[in-house]
Every structure is written in C-alpha cells, then in structure tokens.
Design a protein around this nucleic acid. Structure first.
Length: 154
DNA sequence: GCCAACGTTGGC
DNA sequence: GCCAACGTTGGC
C-alpha cells in the first residue's frame, strides 16, 4: 500500500517534541484526539511507517519542530476510559471504543519551521494546515509537500 | 483576552 | 433533518 504523510499538532505544554524524544524509544501514544475526522485518519488511513510532521500549536512560535513516523497500528485510546483524565468519555464503551490512536515515534528533531515561514514559502500554499479556518489536529500532507518540507529542514 | 471558524448538541 | 446555541481550536 502507498505510504501516506501527515501533519500532527501537539501543544508543547502537553507533549513537546522534547517530551517525545525523552520517551521510551522516542515514542508517544497520540492520546486525546476527540474529533471524528482526525480519528478517522488514524483509524482508517494510517499505516506503520507513514511520515509525520510533528507540529507545535497553541504556543508562542507555532511550527514544524520534528520529523516522525507512525509506529503502530491503531488501537483504543486508553484515556477515554480513565475517569480522572480530561479526555475521559463516559459515552465510550470498552467493547466498542469510540476513540482510536496510533503511536508516533520521533525520527529527528529539527529547527522550528515556523507557521509564518510556511505561509510565505512558494509551493506550500495548498498545505491543508495553512488553509483558513483549519482546526484539524491531524491533516494529510501531499508527497510533494513532504519532500519540499524535508528539503527545507535539511 | 479576543475572535473567526468550525464541530457538536439538542429542541423542534 | 434543520438550525440556533454553545463549545473548542488556535493564531494573534
């Protein structure tokens, strides 16, 4: 099957690229997604070894801060069953989990390729995350954009 | 803190 | 099924 590419947003105050790097095998479970479209990307589209742009959002300097990969097949997000978690979902049942996630492994920390820099780069206008009003925490990235961004990050 | 944009909920 | 109200995201 064809390899896909993704941009995944994380708030650095929750899980930064450094937090992910410090984790065992530089791998984190992508917990907390509670949007159906983003979930569907993880559940239905992602495959092990898909490319991931690790993006910091809701912070002083939003931007791409690392290259990562999808490191697992989809499985139920454990936080949906944890009543102490802010991601707890009382309507989700163990025999029919509502929220699925994948593990994401950092391949390389990069410089911060900032949002303004992305916006002014010719050729990246169609990057989904740059579209007006976009709020999706996981967006597909076209192969040509992936290649261009990797080149920019050296 | 503001607010545009969008998703979800629930009354009808 | 419609749609107003409400909640959330996320840049600024």
């Amino acid at each position: 099957m064809t390899k896909h590419y993704w941009l995944m947003k994380s708030e650095p105050q929750e899980v930064s690229v450094d937090d992910a790097l410090a984790a065992k095998k530089a791998t984190v479970a992508w917990t907390g997604v509670r949007n159906y479209q983003a979930r569907n990307f993880m559940r239905d589209m992602m495959q092990v070894d898909d490319g991931v742009l690790f993006y910091h959002s809701s912070c002083a300097e939003p931007g791409i801060v690392g290259i990562a990969r999808v490191a697992s097949t989809p499985y139920p997000d454990p936080t949906q069953f944890d009543s102490k978690s802010k991601y707890y979902d009382a309507k989700s049942r163990r025999d029919e989990p509502r929220w699925q996630l994948v593990d994401v492994q950092i391949v390389k920390k990069t410089r911060n390729l900032t949002l303004p820099e992305l916006r002014e780069t010719p050729g990246l206008q169609d990057l989904v995350v740059l579209k007006k009003g976009n709020r999706l925490s996981i967006t597909p990235v076209e192969a040509k954009h992936w290649k261009q961004i990797l080149k920019m990050l050296g």
